[in-house]
């Protein structure tokens, strides 16, 4: 399409805004990685952090704590969200209940993490203390489950929605029960989308800080069980900066977090592309 001269300016501005967005991301990532990656080595990842008040040391116990809270949140929110998505898509028509639940997921996703943290503090840390150990990675993970749930629920529902009706009908026509059709045909077809939802939830759980601050306890020791207080990487990054200005540990921790988030972005992007291509090929 030929572009008139006086339209060059607005079109150039639109191009500039796209490039600016990309540029912002690159600047942030490059800055953190350039300063942080040189510090990330095997020792940094596997050594215990130094005692309170001293700089240096590794981040091993914080990686373990991140894995623990993330694992708990996915173990709880994963099955519930996928089950809920299956119900919404396979057992209900477009009706009142479905609208309510979708709306609820949207609201849940919008609640600020510090508010979810306040709730988690009162519910898991105080009220359910005998079962969660009070401030613990278990309390932190259960609180995060409330934030992972809506992300994974929505993405799974979208994925199930794109499964062609013919596949369901074919399976039912061959004599399968509804549940058999779901487990052998519908869910496997939608699996890349469902996995994408879980990975997005995983990313949210890894990156979350405010809710963790109020629930996980923040102890720097290596956890022995889920009932121990722990300090995930995000919280460690905040603590080393504000407590004793250990910028070098902060750079290293931030670089590890960024790499985790980039890996998640690439994997979900690849999965979704493969999935769309596969559906197009049908």
């Amino acid at each position: 399409m030929p572009v008139k001269r006086r339209e060059m300016v607005p079109l150039a501005l639109l191009w500039a805004s796209g490039i600016a967005t990309l540029f912002i991301l690159i600047v942030i990532l490059a800055f953190i990685l350039a300063n942080g990656l040189p510090l990330v080595n095997w020792n940094f990842l596997t050594a215990e952090p130094s005692v309170w008040g001293q700089t240096g040391g590794g981040i091993y116990s914080t990686i373990v704590a991140t894995l623990a809270v993330t694992g708990v949140s996915l173990a709880v929110a994963g099955p519930i969200s996928v089950g809920g998505a299956i119900y919404l898509n396979e057992y209900t028509k477009e009706n009142f209940l479905r609208r309510i639940i979708r709306q609820a997921a949207e609201i849940l996703a919008g609640i600020p993490s510090i508010v979810v943290g306040l709730f988690g503090f009162l519910f898991f840390v105080i009220y359910l203390a005998p079962y969660t150990g009070g401030w613990s990675v278990l309390s932190g993970g259960l609180t995060l489950a409330f934030m992972v749930l809506p992300i994974s629920l929505r993405t799974s529902e979208e994925a199930l929605k794109t499964v062609p009706a013919e596949l369901r009908e074919g399976s039912l026509g061959l004599g399968a029960t509804k549940w058999q059709a779901i487990t052998t045909v519908v869910v496997p077809t939608a699996l890349p989308g469902i996995v994408t939802g879980l990975i997005l939830g995983l990313g949210r759980a890894i990156g979350e800080t405010a809710a963790i601050l109020l629930t996980a306890g923040g102890a720097l020791n290596l956890i022995n069980s889920l009932y121990d207080p722990g300090r995930p990487m995000t919280l460690h990054l905040y603590d080393v900066l504000t407590e004793y200005r250990d910028t070098s540990t902060a750079y290293g921790t931030a670089a590890v977090l960024i790499i985790a988030i980039l890996a998640i972005t690439f994997i979900t992007d690849w999965l979704m592309n493969r999935y769309t291509n596969k559906l197009k090929g049908l």
Binding site: G18, T21, L22, I24, L25, I28, L29, F31, I32, S113, G203, I206, G207, E208, T209, A210, T234, L235, L237, Y238, L241, T247, A250, A254, L257, I258, I261, L262, I264, T265, F266, T268, D269
Partner: peptide, 27 residues
């Protein structure tokens, strides 16, 4: 361009808020 920009925006959404705060604090 879209193939690059869309995942970049997803990455921007995925960067933990504490990392944004850190970037803000040191830059």
């Amino acid at each position: 361009v879209r193939r690059v920009l869309v995942p970049s925006i997803n990455a921007l959404a995925g960067v933990p808020s504490v990392v944004y705060g850190f970037f803000g604090l040191v830059v």
